[in-house]
């Protein structure tokens, strides 16, 4: 190892190789500057350690032994250096020399390693936590997306089901109407005892499935206007022919309207003339039964004047029921 001149001078001082004047000057420096003292002490320690390790050779080794082994105090320092270097060198094969010298140091090292391991574990745990959280968020996003799609699909299905339900209802209604229009075995409709039908219905003809009733249309302010006739017709009836005898024949043409119980217009006839060959004159109107439900109805009769205006003639309430 190459030594700086300053260190060589210090080593010469320690081995007694400096002239007396230089030695005195060096001692003065030691007490004037503590750094010089500590530097010199360090070089001396290294010198002793080198001797204890057997690395001093030649003249230097000889000078060292003359000075340090002949002095009891210095010899003790060599003893200590032997212990120190021996302890360190015995562990030289072990990388962690400092911590295997004593059980406590080893334990302290293990503790530090544990601390670092704990920190590493913590970092790894955090990384794991982040990974798990990311995966969870991904799964959550997928689940939300799937739920949204499923909700849209179910809504579409619900709409289709509603439409199908409505269509089925309509179909059911149509089928009911068709079923009602089918011919039934001949059986005369029996008017309700409470009906105020003024004439018996004509016999049902299976070919046309027409049921004819005669209704008396009273004047609007007639006292009997409030009476409600009940018309019961079999399911197979296709048309319902209403015959309205005119007790008073003032108009050349008439119009007949039919409203349900909710005042909705169900049917309105074209202007037509009364059959004056009959006595009294008779107005006839054919109602398709597929437009009629079991409900209460109001039939209105209007006369058309010469100037085309409609004037109320009479009104009749009746209730239709199916068998």
């Amino acid at each position: 190892m190459k030594q700086s001149p300053d260190e060589a001078r210090l080593r010469a001082f320690l081995l007694g190789d400096l002239p007396a004047a230089e030695r005195d000057a060096m001692e003065a420096d030691i007490f004037a500057d503590k750094e010089v003292f500590y530097r010199l002490s360090e070089i001396e320690d290294r010198l002793i350690d080198d001797y204890a390790r057997g690395v001093l050779t030649g003249e230097e080794r000889l000078r060292f032994e003359q000075l340090y082994l002949t002095n009891p105090a210095r010899r003790q320092r060599v003893e200590f250096a032997r212990a120190l270097t021996s302890a360190l060198d015995r562990q030289s094969d072990t990388p962690v020399t400092a911590n295997t010298l004593t059980p406590e140091l080893a334990a302290a090292k293990v503790e530090r390693q544990r601390w670092w391991l704990s920190l590493l574990e913590l970092l790894r745990a955090r990384q794991t936590a982040w990974t798990v959280m990311t995966v969870c968020l991904g799964l959550l996003a997928v689940a939300v997306g799937w739920l949204w799609l499923e909700r849209s699909r179910l809504q579409a299905e619900l709409t289709q089901t509603r439409l199908a339900y409505q269509a089925a209802n309509e179909r059911q209604r149509e089928l009911e109407v068709q079923l009602a229009a089918l011919p039934r075995p001949a059986s005369n409709p029996v008017p309700s005892p409470t009906a105020t039908v003024t004439s018996q219905p004509t016999p049902l003809t299976s070919a046309e499935a027409v049921l004819a009733f005669t209704l008396n249309v009273f004047a609007l302010r007639s006292e009997t206007n409030n009476a409600t006739d009940q018309i019961e017709f079999p399911s197979g009836t296709k048309r319902l022919e209403l015959r309205l005898p005119l007790l008073k024949h003032d108009f050349s043409r008439y119009r007949i309207s039919l409203h349900d119980s909710n005042a909705r217009l169900i049917f309105r006839s074209t202007p037509r003339a009364a059959n004056t060959t009959a006595n009294p004159p008779l107005l006839t109107v054919n109602l398709p039964t597929n437009r009629l439900l079991a409900d209460a109805y109001v039939l209105t009769l209007e006369g058309i004047s010469e100037n085309g205006e409609f004037e109320p003639v009479g009104k009749k309430q009746f209730r239709l029921t199916r068998r």
Binding site: L14, E27, I30, F31, K34, N71, P72, A73
Partner: peptide, 16 residues
């Protein structure tokens, strides 16, 4: 310590 070392370096047998 400085004094002990001084006496050691002066080859004292009883530096302390």
């Amino acid at each position: 310590l400085m004094l002990v070392k001084f006496f050691e370096w002066r080859d004292s047998w009883f530096p302390e």
